[in-house]
Design a protein around this nucleic acid. Sequence first.
RNA 1: UGGGGUAUCGCCAAGUGGUAAGGCCCCGGAUUUUGAUUCCGGUAUUCCUAGGUUCGAAUCCUAGUACCCCAGCCA
Length: 562
Amino acid sequence: MNTSESSAPAPATHFIHEIIEADLAAGRCQTVVTRFPPEPNGYLHIGHSKSICLNFGTALKYGGRCHLRFDDTNPVKEDTEYVEAIKANIHWLGFDWGEHEYYASDYFDPLYSYAEQLIEKGLAYVDSLSAEEIRAYRGTLKSPGQNSPYRDRSIDENLELFRAMKAGKFEDGAHLLRAKIDMASPNINLRDPALYRIRHAHHHRTGDKWCIYPMYDYAHSLSDAIEGITHSLCTLEFEDHRPLYDWCLEALGWPEPRPHQYEFARLNLSHIRPLMSKRYLVQMVQTGHVSGWDDPRMPTLSAFKRRGVTPAALRDMNERIGVAKSNSEVEYAMLEFCVREDLNKVAQRRMAVLDPLKVVITNYPEGQQENFEAENNPEDPSTGHRSLAFGREIYIERSDFMEEPPKKYFRLAPGQEVRLKHAYYITCQEVIKDAEGQVTELHCTYDPNSRGGWTEDGRKVRGTLHWASAAHACKAELRHYDHLLLGAPAADQLLESQLNPDSLTIVEALVEPALAAAQPGEHFQFLRQGYYVMDADSTPEKPVFNRTVGMVDSWAKQQKKN
RNA sequence: UGGGGUAUCGCCAAGUGGUAAGGCCCCGGAUUUUGAUUCCGGUAUUCCUAGGUUCGAAUCCUAGUACCCCAGCCA
C-alpha cells in the first residue's frame, strides 16, 4: 500500500482481483495460478491479448504463475504450426510461462481413467444414439429433453463399451460417452453433455495413440485441477458452462482446493469487430483479400507487430480498458492513442516528403552543401543527433504550399516566410506553373542568419516544414493502411460487401538518407506525417515502411469543419 | 413463452446507503524549430424505466424494459 499520496495513478483493479484478494485473505488459496488456454487452431488476435494480459498480468501482480496450456482436444482442427506462432506472439507481447508449458493432450491418460471412474460411479454412460437423435432428445431451450434409451446401461456394459471405443472397435460417431446429469435441466449444458467422442484422427502430439478424445468442458476443468490452477478466467459465453466445470470436479470428488472459473467480457474493437472471428480471419487469408495472417491490416498479433504496433501499447490499452462483465466495444481511437503515446517516446524522428513540390532557393550558392545537426528524439535527448544534408534544391510537401491561403495558414504562400525544420527560414518569391496552371516549382530566398532554423531577433515564424534535399534524398515505399472493412456486414451479407477498396495505399516518398540504413522492425516518426516501421520487404535499393498510425492533425480537423 | 448474464457521459469504466473517480473521444486556451508532444480548463443535478424504503439511494425493495449468451459428438 502506498503510504503517502503520490502522483502515480491508482493501480487498476477489477472484480477478478477483488475475488483473488478475498481468496488470499481468507486462505482459500496460498498462491495465484492462472492459465492462458489457446486452442492451436489459428492465429492469436488482439482479442486474445486481453486474456493474455489478464492471465499473465494477474499472476505477476500476485507473485503467482501463469501456465500456457494448449487446449488440443480436437485433432481434426489443430496443428502444430499454430503452436509455435502462438508462443512467439505471447513472448512478443512480453509474457513468459517459464517451464509451465502444457497441453491438454498431456493429460489424455489420466483423463481417460477419470472417465472410467465416472462410469464406475454411475455418473457417465455410453450412448449409442446418432448425432441427430441426440439433438432431438436434447429438447429445446424452453422444453426439457428426454432420456436416451441407453441411459440405464449397466456399469459393466458401459465400461466394456467405453474400453471398446478406446480400442478402436467403432467408427466415428457410433458411440459417445456422456455425463449422466439431468435431461430436464433448464441449463442445456447439463442435459447429459458429451464427455468423449470417437475420432479416428491423427493428433499433432499424441499421433495415432488415441481414437477417442475428451470434450472441452471435461478436459478443461480437469486440466485446470491437475495443474493446480486457482483462478480459471474465461469469457462470458462460458458462464453457463460453469456448473458443468464444477460438476466434473465434484463428481470425481476432487480434493479441495479446487479451481474456480470466473468470466469476463471479451475485448471488442470498433471497425474490426467482424474480423475478430476465426471464420472471417481465415476467409480474409484464403480469399486473398490480404497477403497473409500478418498483413498489417489484419487484427492478428502478428499483423500488429508488422504494422508497428508495440507490445507496450497493447499492454497499456488492456490496462486502460479494464475488466468487467458487460459486453462492450472499445473505440479504435483508444488503441491509436496508446500506440502514439508509446511511439512518441521511443520512435526516432526522420523526415519524409510524400508528395514532393520542388523548391529552389535562389539566393543559396549553387553547388553549396551544408550539414545540420538534427535531434533524433526531442522526448529522449539520450538518442542524440544525426547529420542532415541541405542544398539549394529541396522538396517540400505539396500540401504545405497554397497560392491563396486561408486565414491562419502558417505554411508557405507567396510572400510568406516559414521555417525549414533544422535548416533555414525561407520566403516564397515566385510560383512557377506549367501550361495547365499546375504549380511545378517554387522560387524562394533564405535568410542566412536563420541557420539551424532560428534567429535572435524575435521574429515570429509560425510554420515549420519538413523537407528533403534534392541532391541527397532516397526513394522509399510507404504503405498506408486503412480499415479493411467499411462497416459490419449485415446478417445476409457477405463479408466482401464491406471490403474497403482503399485499405492499402502505396506512396512513393523521398526520405532522408539516414533511413536507408534502418533495420526492419525499427520504428520512426516521420515528422508531421505519422509513425512508421520498416518492413522486412525492404531492399537496399528501396526501403519499405508501414505506417503504424498517422499523427494527430488538428489543422486538418479544423479544415474539415469549415 | 426455459436458463444464465449485463444495464452509470459518444466509447471504456470506478462506485459496495452519505450526496457521480479516471481514461479515450470531443471542445476551448497556453507553450512549441513537428498545427505533434506537453500543459491548463470544459464536458452526467444524474446513474435503463416506474414505484417504494430511508434524514439521505447509482447503491436496498418491488414491478417492468432493453441488450448479450446457450439447443456442436467445436473451443
